[in-house]
Design a protein around this nucleic acid. Structure first.
Lengths: 225, 225
DNA sequence: GGTAGTTTTTGAACATGTTCAAAAAGGTGC
DNA sequence: GCACCTTTTTGAACATGTTCAAAAACTACC
């Protein structure tokens, strides 16, 4: 069991490194195997396909994200700051692996793919990511509309997916635009959330909440475990 | 020149039909060629790749969309109704070809792909689609904020792309959810547009407009032609 | 209607993702 | 150390997207 874990890690790291450098298409399975010093078939003993390497990256990237946040959510109480940090660190963690994120989103675009972040197969990981936003909401000192609160984490997760999409398309130096996008949209979300509680927003409130409710995405939370 | 056009059309139709029925991956180029009665290599005389068939579909789908709208924009003047019809008919036209749209969005997810609707290569077609929304705005009797007006068409186009994405993920019977999504979001957009003009919205207005402005997507309008 | 040039078609060959039967390596109980 | 079983690795073979040199079909001109 020891040796094989090494082979798997070696294959994964080689693949990620090559894909990050040369892109997903340009990296052939044969080349990865060769560089890792094994036969081509070996990769398929550990990974079910080339695309599934992407899913493994998705998993690892989430773990890195959690680690990057270590301690933070236990001390900070401002909703805005919590959200800002969570989303920012997500991008920071992914920064060196834009090609992986690109490939991931290409798969994400196809709901039929078992590897999409929206697929059944990705459910556990997706729910774990949503949990992060539940924590963002729960641990903050902001007030949330009673009907909004339960769906907010999901929509915040979707917002983060949107930010990642923005980033993928962002060609600015060091992804500056993405960080500036976060800097501007997070306060907007926070202030929209505050505003929706105010009497001024009454005419909109009902409409928007019913809209959010009726299209609340099914991220799999109902299904068992 | 005549005969070859026939071959091309035959190949394209066969491919679209097979992909619509069986999916993009499941449809092999050899099978398309066989069904169209030509050698495998022939497809590559007319289409540069399997994925480029998707782009050809994208082109044709736009033409169908225009045709479906024939006359409408010349008579209707309500902004809300104009927007509603344009977006609804886009989906209606695409309805039988969900698999094509799926494949298109998988490509769209990768900004590096020359075939993405956001790529340089797709610029002309994309600008033509944005023009449709310029027409939606121009021919309506609604008032638009002076700074908002010039970017509105682009954002409406992006909204439509979002609707298509929603549709791709929509598993409801006859895509009911998508149409209901349109029914709810179009009035929301229209009323948000009205509200932004009202004094009540003053505190938000500046922020939102500056946000929209600074992240106005570059859809290629500046580049030549 | 035959010659020369162009367009279209062919099909074998190639690269790459993937499979799988067989071989090798590793582990366990004696 | 050996027999037996499991895990891991190999590499040839296969399917599919794609290329390309050669053949075929077509066109224009005399």
């Amino acid at each position: 069991m020891r040796k094989s874990e090494l082979t798997k890690q070696s294959l994964f790291r080689t693949a990620v490194e090559m894909i990050a450098r040369e892109g997903f298409e340009a990296t052939t399975m044969r080349a990865v195997a060769a560089k890792a010093g094994v036969a081509p078939g070996a990769i398929y003993y550990y990974f079910e396909s080339k695309e599934s390497l992407i899913q493994e990256y998705y998993r690892q990237s989430h773990a890195d994200h959690i680690k990057a946040l270590e301690g933070f959510l236990e001390t900070e109480t401002s909703f805005e700051k919590r959200l800002h940090r969570v989303v920012t660190s997500k991008i920071e963690v992914a920064l060196p692996y834009k090609n992986m994120a690109r490939a991931l989103f290409r798969i994400a675009g196809d709901p039929a793919s078992r590897l999409s972040p929206f697929s059944d197969e990705s459910r556990d990981l997706r729910l774990e990511a949503v949990k992060l936003f539940e924590e963002v909401v729960r641990g903050s000192d902001s007030k949330f509309h009673a009907e909004l609160a339960p769906m907010l984490p999901k929509y915040l997760w979707l917002y983060m997916m949107g930010v990642i999409l923005f980033w993928i398309y962002d060609k600015s130096e060091s992804s500056k635009n993405t960080f500036s996008f976060i800097d501007k949209t997070v306060p907007l979300i926070a202030s929209l959330n505050d505003t929706i509680m105010s009497p001024l927003a009454a005419p909109f409130r009902k409409k928007i909440i019913s809209l959010l409710k009726s299209f609340e995405p099914d991220l799999g939370e109902k299904a068992g475990a």
